Simulated assay, not measured.
Amino acid sequence: MKILMASPEPPASDYGNGVTARRWAGMLRELGHDVLISLGYEGGGYDALVALHAGRSAECIRRFAAEHPGAPIVIGLTGTDLYPDFATSGVDPAVLELADRFVTLQSHGVQQLPPQLRPRARVITQSLPPVPAAEPRTDCFEVAFLAHVRPVKDPLLPAKAVRLLPADSRIALTHAGGARDEASQREVAAEAADNPRYTWLGALPRADALQVLARSRLLVLSSRHEGGANVVTEALAVGVPVISTHIPGSTGLLGDDYPGYFPVGDADALAAALYAAERNDGGVYDRMKERCGALRHLAEPGREKHAWAELWAELRAEQPSLTERVRRGQP
């Protein structure tokens, strides 16, 4: 099939949507499809559309549906689509109705869909090819924070938290991620200059950021919302335990009873969780590491590729009925 992969980020972007679009396109090519990644739909003949972000790709989805009646449409639902809900995110319900399948990155995302659309959803966990092992630093207890400087990531919360640590803590926070505007850049740079436990590396090539993760003792995720963070599955792939905000995007991957959560926006709680992990209080670090190890299979590329193969097999089987049906408002 000739597939258009529509992403709200440029194909070379290291932001989450760009990374996801490249990985999905690569897997679909391996499955024998011809895939073009584009910022939108500019016309042309395609057999199917995969659109990342129901909100930001809405016009692309509408145009494609109008010009390719019956061609399958798959919508990849992102965190800013799903949370706090579609209405608040500004997602047009009519656009959702145009989808033949939805892809969510973790199991809780399906529940955000209207009940009549949930049967169209498939959970496809993100993956990561093997990353070379890296020795942890011996001069500190390094914690990785891999996030671009955007409000939804609450990017200064981890830096605020490490300021609250007791003097005997050896925790050092390493932040890799770019700032999209000068004001954010100045704010983060000022924090790094004044906070001895916090190092901001700015935007790094993805391979270099993964090496920071691979050598770290922990990953911290401070996001207010996530559809299913790339970096969490990357941490699973490299065997690094995660401390995360208690959000559906993480509980849907790590489990509701995972021992490494803290409330959204709570620097004190994050500081306490980091210190407890460093000290392994009550064996909490061991339990996080054990759980993340048990979930490592979720990040295997073969598993993700197989899930995409199954999805396209379903769509091929349905194709005769797809080409005959009127899309508007019909499940």
Score class of each variant (00 low, 15 high):
S216D: 07
L96P: 01
V103T: 11
P119C: 13
E135C: 06
P205F: 05
I124T: 15
W200Y: 07
R215I: 02
L173M: 07
G202T: 01
P205K: 05
P158D: 04
A99Y: 06
D168I: 15
N195V: 02
V91C: 03
A190D: 11
Q211C: 00
H108S: 13
P158F: 08
D100A: 03
L98D: 04
R120G: 10
S127A: 15
A189F: 00
S89V: 04
G109I: 03
S169R: 04
A167E: 15
A172Q: 08
G177L: 01
L218P: 00
T174A: 12
E187H: 15
L117N: 05
A209Y: 02
L173F: 04
P196C: 09
A209H: 02
V188P: 01
P158Y: 14
P151W: 14
F145M: 01
P166C: 13
V188E: 01
V212K: 07
T125D: 13
A172W: 05
L157E: 08
E135W: 10
E191V: 05
L113W: 04
P136W: 09
C140S: 14
S184Y: 09
I171H: 00
D139N: 10
R122K: 14
A189D: 02
I124E: 08
E182M: 14
G178E: 05
L96E: 02
D154E: 12
S127M: 10
L105S: 10
R186T: 11
L204H: 05
L173D: 04
E97N: 11
V123G: 12
F145P: 03
E97F: 04
R120V: 06
L105T: 13
R122S: 11
A183K: 14
A133R: 14
V91R: 03
G202Y: 04
Q106I: 02
L156G: 08
V212L: 10
L213N: 02
H175S: 00
L164F: 09
R180K: 14
T125M: 12
L113G: 01
D154V: 14
L113S: 11
V212R: 01
L96Q: 08
L204M: 12
R186D: 10
A176K: 12
L165W: 05
V149I: 06
Q126D: 08
W200T: 06
G109N: 07
P205C: 00
G202A: 01
A134D: 13
H175A: 03
E191W: 03
S127E: 11
L165I: 09
V212I: 12
P114R: 15
L117R: 13
Q211R: 12
A172N: 06
D194H: 04
K153D: 02
